[in-house]
């Protein structure tokens, strides 16, 4: 008996993998049904439906990049402190002295890549008409995921706390100031006053809520940190689950039923 067979025959192995190795047709079916990670997939698919030149693999790549971001992000969270005193210095140290500081590089490049791949995924889904019935709602979920991807990237942009970061966030969040009715420089905000007191001021408008202050400061850093590391990823994870589940329920990634 070879070592491989010995291991496969052991009680431990069999308790984890409840069927023989997927060498024959039967076990290739069974493996998909009994493995938690693989059961996301159907057992069999149309050949053209998974051809690379058809799907471009962009949805899968986006998901993989999300996992990369999660893993590298969690590792970075062990090191990085979101305070005015430490944020920049921690990033500096990650670049110059910290072992595995490359996690920051990978995190940032994978984030850029994820924005691009999520666009390309949408591009492909549009071009193959895969948003058409019965997949309309999953397209809507996808648009939400696209927005959240951009927001994830946007909130993460601030965390290095360098010039690039705060001014990009300043420019980006200045828009909120002009939100109709909800921004203090937006049309209609003047109407919202009670007995001569403005309800919408620079200390109560949409931008203030976003930044936690009148300008990009320590509160903003904290707010964006929580949004970036906890709040948005939780929502994204939930929506991804729905998105994948709907792919299965709506009849596979593309093509009519």
């Amino acid at each position: 008996m070879s070592i491989g067979e010995y291991i496969r025959d052991s009680q431990i192995w069999k308790s984890i993998f409840r069927h023989p190795a997927p060498y024959d047709r039967r076990n290739r079916v069974v493996v998909m049904l009994t493995n938690f990670f693989l059961h996301l997939h159907p057992v069999s698919v149309k050949k053209q439906g998974i051809a690379l030149s058809y799907t471009w693999c962009m949805g899968g790549i986006t998901f993989f990049l999300f996992l990369v971001e999660t893993v590298t992000g969690v590792l970075l969270m062990f090191y990085y402190r979101p305070t005015l005193e430490w944020a920049y210095n921690d990033i500096l140290a990650l670049r110059d002295v910290t072992t595995l500081g490359i996690m920051r590089e990978i995190h940032r490049w994978a984030a850029h890549a994820m924005v691009i791949t999520v666009w390309l995924h949408m591009y492909r889904v549009f071009l193959t008409g895969s948003y058409k019935p019965p997949r309309e709602f999953n397209w809507v979920v996808g648009v939400l995921l696209l927005v959240l991807t951009l927001l994830l990237s946007f909130t993460g942009y601030l965390l290095p706390w360098d010039q690039l970061a705060i001014w990009a966030i300043t420019v980006g969040s200045n828009m909120a100031r002009a939100t109709p009715f909800l921004g203090h420089e937006g049309p209609g905000a003047q109407i919202l006053n009670l007995g001569g007191f403005d309800l919408i001021t620079n200390a109560s408008d949409a931008r203030f809520i976003l930044l936690g202050g009148r300008f990009v400061g320590e509160n903003t850093l904290n707010r964006f940190y929580i949004l970036h590391c906890v709040a948005i990823p939780l929502v994204v994870a939930g929506l991804i689950a729905i998105h994948f589940w709907r792919v299965r329920k709506d009849g596979g990634i593309s093509q009519p039923l």
Binding site: R95, P160, D162, Q163, I166
Partner: peptide, 28 residues
Amino acid sequence: LVVWGVVLQAPLEDPASAVRTPNPSKAP
């Protein structure tokens, strides 16, 4: 991603300063 991370360093500019506005200031 690993090769990209090794070859190209992620950007890190001067520490944030609320009084020095870069020109141009660009969004992400």
